[in-house]
């Protein structure tokens, strides 16, 4: 399972490194979305950073949705799914690999967006650094859950529009928990409490993915 996961993750990351979709499409979109939120608040409000964590996670949500679809569409070329199926790869490994690759990509995006929110939304630098572990865990959870939900939407009508409908109710608690622990790092408050829920969700989604991903892929 681990070997397959490593193989799939390396494959996805290599495709990403060569196609540069993340660099030239997703990151610019995220940065522009962040700038626009700063503009929408206006200079006076943008300096007041209490909205920073919320806006960061809102932009992260948009970017995550794009990247889940991107990650799933790697197998969309005609015949790819069928030929991958004949390789006899362990589906749990495929799931872990895709989730791992997506996690790495989201981490890169997340760090760029964090730098952006420090610059544009004036979130405090020290608080942001303190919030970093919780943000990384939240992004990993979004990636794992997103891989599972992404697999549900592929191949049907309008996967790009179906994905937000399926994921939003599931992502909402994660985003709220992430936002709260980010806010707690900035303004003080219960940090660990929200951490625990994201961490537990990460373990639960990983377990469910290992169990059920095979069902989605089998034909």
């Amino acid at each position: 399972m681990i070997a397959v996961a490593r193989l799939v993750a390396a494959k996805d990351l290599r495709i990403e490194a060569r196609s540069r979709v993340l660099l030239w499409q997703v990151l610019p979109f995220g940065v522009i979305a962040l700038l626009l939120s700063g503009l929408a608040l206006g200079p006076a409000q943008a300096g007041n950073s209490s909205a920073g964590p919320g806006l960061f996670y809102l932009v992260t949500l948009f970017v995550t949705l794009l990247m889940i679809n991107r990650s799933q569409s790697l197998e969309n070329a005609p015949g790819t799914r069928a030929s991958v199926a004949t390789l006899g790869l362990d589906p749990a490994g495929v799931f872990l690999g895709k989730a791992l690759a997506l996690t790495v990509e989201l981490w890169v995006t997340g760090i760029v967006l964090l730098a952006g929110s420090v610059l544009v939304l004036h979130t405090a630098l020290i608080g942001t650094v303190q919030a970093l572990p919780s943000i990384l865990v939240t992004l990993a959870t979004l990636a794992v859950a997103g891989t599972l939900y992404g697999a549900l939407t592929q191949g049907g009508d309008g996967p790009a529009t179906l994905l937000p409908v399926l994921t939003l109710p599931a992502f909402a608690p994660l985003l709220i928990a992430g936002e709260r622990s980010f806010s707690a790092a900035l303004h003080g408050g219960a940090l660990w409490e929200w951490w625990v829920i994201v961490l537990v969700a990460l373990v639960a989604y990983t377990a469910v993915g290992i169990l059920l991903y095979g069902v989605l892929e089998e034909s």
């Binding site: 549900l152 939407t153 191949g155 049907g156 009508d157 309008g158 996967p159 179906l162 409908v165 399926l166 939003l168 109710p169 599931a170 059920l212 069902v215 989605l216 089998e218």
Partner: peptide, 24 residues
């Protein structure tokens, strides 16, 4: 979630694929 389930069913035409995905 329940509305999303109905949306998911509408997006798939293949009966077995639809059944499996909506069950998950």
């Amino acid at each position: 979630f329940a509305l999303a389930y109905l949306a998911l069913r509408r997006a798939n035409d293949d009966p077995t694929l639809r059944a499996r995905r909506s069950a998950v």
